[in-house]
Every structure is written in structure tokens, then in C-alpha cells.
Simulated scan of single mutants.
Amino acid sequence: MTTRAPEDVIVVDALRKVYDEKEAVAGITFSVRRGEVFGLLGPNGSGKTTALETIVGLRRPTSGTVTVLGVDPARDRRRITERVAVQPQAAALFPTLTVRETIQLFASFYGARQDPEAIIEEVGLQDEARARVKNLSGGQERRLLIGIALVGKPEILVLDEPSAGLDPASRRNLWSIIERQRERGTSVLLSTHHMDEATQVCDRLAILVHGSIAVEGEPDALIRQYSATATVSFTLPPTTTGIDINALGLTGDITTTETYGGTRVAVVTDDADAVLRRLTFTPGLHAFDYAVKHGSLEDVFLDAADRKPTESTNVMP
């Protein structure tokens, strides 16, 4: 059983959800702290959306418990809807209302709310404020959904694939929105398929595989754990003679590829700095076009996705 800390606003303890004998979520346990951005990652069908829907009270657990702001979200729906906002992957909006009218409508549902004009500006829809919902692009509608979620000043913001359909500039704007919410003390729980997004915005994350948490921890800590090695690449010009790469004393696995510009060398090593020093101080080497590639969250994700259901790794902050 997980222990609830005073700053935890979401506590998920041994959550299971079964549909017609199919286990969508298989006993997951994690918590989200106040003012934290927590990411749920995983392949399609891993249970992310089911977990989110249970956390916001749209579904009841088959077993286990979910506590949000100290209450059961499925039993105390009114309190949850007043304090928790959800931006789903898709929603049915009024197609003939304008963007401004839509934000104003949803703002009217809350006692404490943000200025609709400020929300329109925050999600970058100033130029579309008079446009009707039915005429919005997919990315614009996605931004409108985020604005609807923000207008009620939520304590917890739940985002399900928030950047789907957004262009690169809009994604960057979304990340800025999430960062501002964190600065205001809002907790953000999001699911995403974008590894750069998870690395950029998440304080902690969990990767779901087959309905179970395969990996959990801070993005940087996870990357360090799964990136014990780095690849140092460089090119030797065609004029280089008398150099035996294998005799340089480089620590790691070495591969060479002949290219138009010379010989491309890649060294997979657990000490990239030592390799670079050796290369730098070898007389007559004349190497150029150096590159050092470390692992990424995508490597962690792919490793976790290939893992068997019983395997898991937790990296605590």
C-alpha cells in the first residue's frame, strides 16, 4: 500500500481495471505531488487513457483505490469537477459558437474563473476568437480544448495527448502553458507519445506496458540509467596514413565506414571523455566532425515497451 505524503494530490494504489476479462490496468501504484508535472507514457493499448479516466472519476476501479485531493473521484464527482479540469483527446463542442463564446460559456460554469480573453490569448487563439468552432483546424480545436480546461482555475489539470495535431510552434506554446501552470502551483497529469515533450515538461513520469508500470522516475535519471554508454563518432580524412585505429587504446567497441569524405569511425564507450582525450592528443590523427551521442528517453521507452509484463524498473528521485 502506498503512503500518502501531505503534498500528494493524486494517489493511485494497486489500481486494476478489467473489461470483459481483459485487464486494461494491472495494479499500478503512483502518486502526483502538488505543483508537479507527471507524465504517463506507453504504447497504444497500454492502459494510459483507462488510468486517466479512472483518476478523474469517469470509471470505477475493478480493485485498488484512487484518491484525488483527498476524495474518491468516482463518488464525489461535484467536488472533483470543481477542482480538476480535463482536456480529452476529443470532445463534442457547439459547432456554431465562436471561440470566444465557447470560452465564455464554460467560464460561466465556475464560481472562480479566469478572464476568457486572457485564456484566448494564453492558448494563442486571438486571431480565431470570432471564428466558429466548426471552422477550426484540428490543431486550433485542440488549443481551444486546452483553454476550456484552464478557464476554471483548476488545482489539477489532466491532459490526454495534448499536443496531438499541433504544429511545432503550437507545441512549444503548449509547453510554456504547462510550465506556467506549474509555477502557479497547479499539478499537471498528462499522457503523451512525444518523448521530447515528456523530457521537456515532466518532473517525473511512468511508462505503462501491458497495463503495468514498467519504468518510473525522473526523466534525466532514467536516461542516465539507460545510457551508461555513449557513441563517439569522428571522421578521418583520406590523407590519414599510418594510423591503426585499433591500436589507439580506445575503450569501447569500434566500427568504421568508408565514406566520400574519408573514414567514419564510431566508438561505443562508457567513457566518452577518455575517448575524446585520446583522439585529441594522438599525433597525426587529424580527425574532424566529432559527435557524441548519448541515450534519450526514446531509448528508455523502447526498452520498456519490449519488456515482459512481469519486468519493471523504478528510479526514485
Rank of each mutant, 00 (worst) to 15 (best):
M1L: 12
T2K: 14
T2D: 09
R4A: 14
R4M: 13
V9D: 01
V11H: 01
R16V: 04
D20S: 14
E23H: 11
E23N: 10
S31A: 14
R34P: 08
F38N: 03
G42Y: 02
G42L: 04
P43F: 06
G45I: 06
G45Y: 01
S46N: 00
G47H: 06
T49K: 03
T49F: 04
T54M: 01
T54H: 04
T54V: 07
R60Q: 11
P61G: 02
P61Y: 07
T62E: 09
V66A: 00
L69Q: 08
R79S: 13
R83M: 12
A85Y: 06
A91L: 13
A91N: 14
A92Q: 15
A92F: 14
L93Y: 05
P95Y: 06
T96A: 12
L97D: 07
T98E: 13
V99T: 02
T102E: 03
Q104C: 13
Q104P: 10
F106H: 03
G111I: 13
Q114L: 14
D115M: 10
I119V: 15
G124V: 13
L125A: 04
Q126L: 14
D127L: 13
E128N: 12
A129G: 05
A131W: 05
R132T: 15
V133N: 07
K134E: 15
N135W: 09
N135T: 12
L136E: 06
S137E: 03
S137C: 06
G139V: 02
Q140I: 12
I146Y: 12
G152W: 02
G152N: 09
P154C: 06
L159S: 07
D160T: 09
P162S: 10
A164S: 11
G165F: 05
G165D: 08
L166Y: 13
A169Q: 13
A169H: 09
R171K: 11
R171E: 07
R172I: 15
R172C: 06
E179I: 08
R182L: 08
T199S: 14
T199I: 05
D203A: 10
R204A: 00
R204D: 02
E218P: 00
E218R: 00
P219V: 07
L222G: 01
Y226T: 07
S227M: 05
T229N: 00
S233W: 03
T235V: 11
L236D: 04
L236F: 04
L236M: 02
P237D: 02
T240V: 14
T240C: 06
G242P: 13
I243K: 01
L248H: 07
L248Y: 01
L250K: 06
I254G: 05
R264Q: 15
V267L: 04
V268L: 14
D271L: 01
A272L: 08
L276A: 11
L276R: 10
R277D: 13
R278A: 11
G284S: 12
A287R: 08
V292G: 05
L297N: 04
D299Q: 11
V300F: 02
D303A: 10
D306T: 14
P309M: 06
E311N: 06
V315W: 00
V315I: 08
V315E: 00
M316G: 00
